[in-house]
Nucleic acid binder design. Structure first.
Lengths: 193, 193
DNA sequence: ACTTTAGGTAAATTATATTATATCGATTAT
DNA sequence: ATAATCGATATAATATAATTTACCTAAAGT
């Protein structure tokens, strides 16, 4: 069976992963030794991976990403593979149930794929924007009050100055469980083409 | 070294990958045999992975993703990740003159072009980070207190919930003109190479 | 009944990932 | 100069991923 082509592509991936790992390690000023103790992966294996001469197992990949507290996709350069489309921008300021007032701060359509909003969530109310298009990442910070956020089947309770990051393409809802207004700061990024 | 916890997490990842693979395969109505010939990975290995009883190598992961023509991150559920940043959990960094405390919220410098920080500016003090590299854009929001910001020769006075956007490559300084702490929310973007 | 297909299991083998240890050259610091 | 650190390299040993082959059960079709 001819798998030369595939093998070469897999080789390329290994090389790219190695370059990425080396770049991240050097950006943090770490030696192979230090990285080894952080990740519980031997220095030799790390060196081999960085030189693209390794075929690391999933557990090793996970250990490295975990030790560096980065997503695995950061190692695999998967960010660049994501296909994009731009959000269709309706200029809504009020949500359907009027529970939430959205206030655009900077519209980055002219500068890049970034939008910043401020949102005021009324007491004891819920705002469900639904899922956005693929490639949207939301960063939400609680500026005042409390926020209960539901992302698919999981709930997260955030207090003042807490932040959360998640993929906006997942079904989610913002809930103000308190009797006073909640103020949120939204940063939304859209993957580039 | 105690790595039981980490190992369990790695196990969880393997299980999740297995579930994802099985779901994708069944959604496409493929048998293990068919998937094996599509991916050039043995049926037994595929079965082991689906049952979470395997620790596949990067090349096998790549072969599967390639055979199914899906991004690797789709297999790894990387886009399902949710990160929460709590108010006081981050490692704070002090500026040279100790006027400003910087608290990273989400650091994407290694795999993207976005960083989010929270900053605490001491009463009646100034923080001058100098000019950053070219291509940096800063979005600053006042979460609490007041901020006087100097950008080259111009001054801007911001109050609670005000925001400002400017090019970080220009010389700038953050000034807290009040007697109480100022809390800022930073979003910094970097143009990609 | 019988046959086929799918998926799980087992044993044996091959291939290779991972580690430990040591050495080497280059750089950096004292 | 000398020592120390870093990354590359080599070797050997161990652990385990991956394949092959075979057999098993359950379900679905004929």
């Amino acid at each position: 069976m001819d798998n030369t082509h595939k093998w070469n592509d897999a080789e390329k991936l290994a090389k790219k992963v190695g370059e990425t790992l080396r770049r991240i390690r050097q950006e943090r000023g770490l030696s192979l030794q230090e990285l080894a103790s952080m990740t519980d992966v031997s220095k030799l294996t790390l060196g081999n991976i960085e030189r693209g001469e390794a075929n690391p197992s999933l557990s090793v990949i996970w250990k490295i990403a975990n030790g560096l507290t980065i997503p695995i996709s950061a190692l695999l350069n998967e960010n660049q593979e994501v296909l994009v489309s731009r959000k269709n921008k309706g200029n809504k300021v009020l949500s359907a149930n009027e529970a939430c007032t959205l206030e655009p701060i900077f519209d980055a359509s002219n500068y890049g794929s970034l939008e910043i909003h401020r949102a005021f969530l009324k007491p004891n109310s819920e705002y469900s924007p639904g899922a956005h298009q693929a490639g949207v990442i939301e960063y939400v910070t609680v500026m005042k009050g409390e926020l209960k956020i539901k992302i698919q089947d999981d709930y997260y309770h955030l207090y003042e100055y807490d932040s959360i990051k998640f993929n906006g393409s997942r079904e989610h809802a913002y809930i103000n469980p308190t009797g006073s207004e909640t103020v949120l700061h939204f940063v939304m990024t859209y993957s580039k083409s």
